[in-house]
Design a protein around this nucleic acid. Structure first.
Length: 272
DNA sequence: ATGACGGGGTTACCCCGA
């Protein structure tokens, strides 16, 4: 792996990659910048920018040491990839055969010799209904694209807010979520089909026996009750599985004033 | 079934999210 375009200054040739649903990048820019300076990730996927293309804080992030590519949209959605020390090489905005090109939910770039897809899957509620249909259509095209990426036989990471609770162990009270678009059998099957393609769920691999939530609702004192969900996932192509050294969630970010309802999830890869 | 919370911006009895 070439050092060009990389920043291998983490101890032991490791690469830290994080995904963070920021829920409004401009309203939460101070939170984002302090998290970046405290945790120093090499690569960051962001979701729910809630900012049009022209209002992405490119300059402030550059001053913090990160170059960005982003796919904005007025008011909702929006995804970005940040790379410390060099420029991400954009490979696509939006999915092939995207069911609705007006919704900015996918961006992909080459970073540090990896291909990185950053996604914000539709929520899908209420189910049934048009939003549920859109979620299933989007996941179908995403799954097809994931299969294509594996066929390239390069290291790939698909990171972001999948809006899927993969199993009953990934939710504080699964009974309450049985009829929800985050947990209905169709979306759990969609997630399982990705794993069957060969993708490795990094958080689940490192923490097989404990719930690792990434989201706590603003309502009903969910954070105080630890009534969380695991919605944000980092999937690794099989050729990266042996590189996975650590994974976790920066839970403390959820407890801060003006917090996003999601916390950052991260992995450390050995890229020696 | 509803609302509570909290971003966005058409500042609304608004929209959206999960």
């Amino acid at each position: 792996m070439s050092r060009k375009g990389g920043c291998f200054d983490r101890e032991g040739g490791a690469l830290k990659i994080a995904t963070y649903n920021i829920n409004g990048i401009n309203g939460r820019l101070k939170t984002l910048l302090s998290w970046l300076s405290e945790t120093n990730p090499d690569i960051v996927c962001l979701q729910e920018l809630k900012a049009p293309q022209a209002k992405f804080p490119e300059k402030q992030l550059a001053e913090a040491g990160y170059a960005s590519v982003w796919h904005g949209q007025s008011r909702w959605n929006g995804v970005a990839i940040l790379l410390r020390g060099s420029e991400p090489v954009l490979t696509r905005r939006g999915l092939p055969r995207d069911p609705d090109r007006s919704q900015s939910r996918y961006i992909e770039a080459a970073v540090n010799g990896l291909l990185l897809g950053c996604l914000y899957a539709p929520n899908g509620n209420p189910a049934p209904g048009p939003k549920w249909d859109y979620k299933l259509a989007w996941l179908k095209q995403f799954t097809a694209h994931a299969k294509h990426l594996l066929s390239l036989d390069v290291p790939v990471i698909l990171a972001g807010d999948y809006n899927i609770i993969p199993t009953e162990h990934d939710v504080y009270n699964s009974d309450r979520w049985l009829d929800d678009a985050l947990f209905l059998p169709q979306v759990r099957r969609a997630y399982a089909s990705l794993l069957k393609q060969g993708w490795h769920d990094a958080i689940a691999t490192i923490h097989p026996d404990m719930p690792v939530y990434t989201f706590w609702d603003y309502l009903r004192h969910a954070w105080e009750r630890n009534a969380g969900l695991r919605l944000d996932h980092l999937l690794l192509s099989p050729n990266l599985a042996s590189r996975l050294k650590d994974a976790g969630v920066d839970r403390n970010m959820r407890g801060r004033p003006k917090a996003s309802d999601h916390a950052p999830a991260w992995i450390v890869l050995d890229i020696e």
